[in-house]
Nucleic acid binder design. Structure first.
Lengths: 131, 131
DNA sequence: CATTATATTCGGAATAGTTCCGATTACGAA
DNA sequence: TTCGTAATCGGAACTATTCCGAATATAATG
């Protein structure tokens, strides 16, 4: 754990939301002005490999990072791209059946809900009324 | 439906697998040598908007395209990136409960399993034996 | 403490996937 | 045929990420 790695890790935790690498970089920079983007990327990748943080993917090509290792799910706004945790009562299988005709060794399951966040929904409503 | 759009659509169907935009471009090119990559991208995007094809996302940043509109799920090999349909008997909720504390309007659900395909699993086994 | 080895950092260049844009071309309606 | 709209081509631009070489920090050893 180098100084930079600790700060990257703490920043992911501090931001709480589901920041992208660049958002983490911008925040780390405040504490460590000379840090480079590649250092942030490398340390994020090490932290993911070590299981200290998780990645979240949605639509769009950026990866989001999550410090919450507990079993939970995400929703992404298709308008603004924001990722949030989601609390709803529908059931997602927490156990993956490894048997499949295709012969894959299944290791993980990416699940992200897609929708519109309250802020964007509201903004769209206001814009409709104005028009 | 322009000539190019029809060919892009037919190519996605013909390829059957879950090709990336570039793979589609390379195949379309054989039939339409002067086609540009941007034309392929634009038409893929229009076909997606019209609901004629679907996108599949996994790890990595490329988008895969799928002509199969029926309800089914995908698995991606984390080694080679290949995407396949998956037939297994675990249960995925087909109906999304729209109620959630966060107030999102939920519209869709991205699900992709991640694992190792039989070919890569075998190749890794052989390499281990050699070493 | 000095020395050496190893790992990490910085900075920028390179890459990959995708989108955008201006100029040209095809298509349809009048 | 003419005009207007939409689509195409080609390449530049953009975004996210990875890679690489040189410099620096860290740790272990004598």
């Amino acid at each position: 754990m180098t100084k930079q790695r600790v700060i990257v890790f703490n920043t992911v935790k501090a931001l709480g939301s589901h920041p992208t690498a660049f958002e983490i970089f911008e925040r780390v920079r405040k504490e460590l002005p000379g840090v480079s983007l590649s250092t942030v990327y490398r340390n994020l990748s090490i932290l993911v490999d070590q299981g200290d943080i998780l990645t979240v993917r949605g639509i769009g090509q950026e990866v989001h990072y999550d410090h919450n290792l507990h079993d939970h799910y995400h929703v992404q706004c298709r308008i603004c791209g924001k990722v949030s945790d989601i609390h709803t009562d529908f059931i997602i299988p927490s156990c993956i059946n490894p048997n499949n005709e295709e012969g894959y060794i299944i290791e993980d399951m990416l699940i992200t809900l897609i929708g519109v966040c309250p802020e964007c929904a509201n903004r769209m409503k206001v814009e409709d009324e104005d028009a």
